[in-house]
């Protein structure tokens, strides 16, 4: 492999990581039956909180913790509205994105241009020297490694634990889960909050690892791309990796082409990740329809015993 190819692939992993966190989070929420279109807003507030805490404490882990915390809190607002108050899930998610975009831009105005020392590249011993894969996967920063751990963990929880069984039951047949003694509302609250924590971490990755700065609206639609990738992933954490790194690959490639000079117009390159996501969504929709891998049956349907 040429050095350039290795560099692009390593960049693809980095560019895919924030979307991977957010996609994993949204998989949990949707598996429990709650559609959360507030991912973009939660990521933005997470990015700001992560950056602000990093800048103040000098410790990027404090930033990651803060981002996860505020992301989880925003998730709980969506949970309260959609689970307890049975509000429309699309509307509540959009409200969350509008609020998150506004509040992060407002509270973040003092952090524009402020320096902070975020996560640094930490090559893993031995693994980083693996031929081929080493420089691509194991010469990254700690949050990337955290995302590596999060994927199998999410898969294990969903498919191999009692919690996962309860989550899937609540998302498919809440009345059956309820009859079996599962607290539907509690499971849904937990999943939406977990989704917020992961979206917040994805945001923090952007502001403390991918770059070390805060810019208004810096997620640039990545939250929406994560929502699209959940469908591509057919609600499966392992397939989310493929989706996130594909997106990362397109992003890395267009940045590489911008840097090395090409005849393609720059705006066409900048559009590529969005257009690519739409194409992926179209393909994934056909595939899930053909293989009957539909969304969780109770997705975006409020549950109550009296209905």
């Amino acid at each position: 492999m040429t050095l350039a190819a290795v560099a692009v692939l390593a960049a693809a992993v980095r560019a895919g990581t924030p979307v991977l966190f957010a996609t994993l989070g949204e998989i949990f929420a949707e598996r429990a039956g709650i559609l959360n279109l507030g991912v973009e807003g939660m990521m933005l507030v997470g990015a700001l909180a992560g950056f602000a805490a990093t800048a103040r404490t000098g410790n990027p882990w404090a930033g990651a913790a803060a981002a996860g915390f505020v992301g989880g809190c925003l998730g709980l607002i969506h949970a309260l509205l959609t689970i307890t108050l049975r509000a429309n899930q699309v509307a509540s998610g959009l409200a969350l994105t509008i609020f998150g975009t506004g509040v992060s831009a407002f509270l973040g105005r003092g952090y524009v241009g402020v320096p902070a020392s975020g996560f640094e590249t930490t090559p893993l011993p031995l693994l980083s020297r693996l031929p081929g894969l080493g420089p691509i996967l194991f010469q990254q920063d700690p949050l990337v490694y955290l995302s590596f751990a999060a994927v199998p963990l999410a898969w294990y929880v969903l498919y191999r634990t009692r919690w996962g069984l309860e989550i899937r039951a609540v998302g498919e047949r809440p009345e059956a889960a309820d009859a079996m003694g599962v607290d539907v509302a509690r499971v849904r609250y937990a999943c939406v909050a977990a989704g917020g924590v992961l979206a917040g971490l994805g945001g923090a990755f952007l502001s403390t690892a991918y770059t070390s700065m805060w810019i208004e609206n810096m997620t640039a639609g990545r939250g929406w791309i994560a929502v699209a990738l959940v469908i591509f992933a057919t609600w499966d954490p392992l397939r989310a990796v493929a989706g996130a790194y594909l997106f990362g690959g397109v992003n890395a490639l267009q940045l590489h082409l911008q840097a090395t000079g090409t005849n393609l117009p720059i705006y066409l390159l900048l559009m590529a990740p969005y257009v690519f996501t739409i194409i992926v969504l179209v393909v994934a929709t056909q595939e899930t329809a053909r293989k009957r891998l539909g969304a969780p049956a109770a997705l975006s349907v409020p549950y109550s015993r009296t209905d």
Partner: peptide, 16 residues
Amino acid sequence: AVVYMLQGLIFFFVLG
């Protein structure tokens, strides 16, 4: 952005 923050809050409270 202050306007967006307020709009988001209004939307939240109307939904609730």
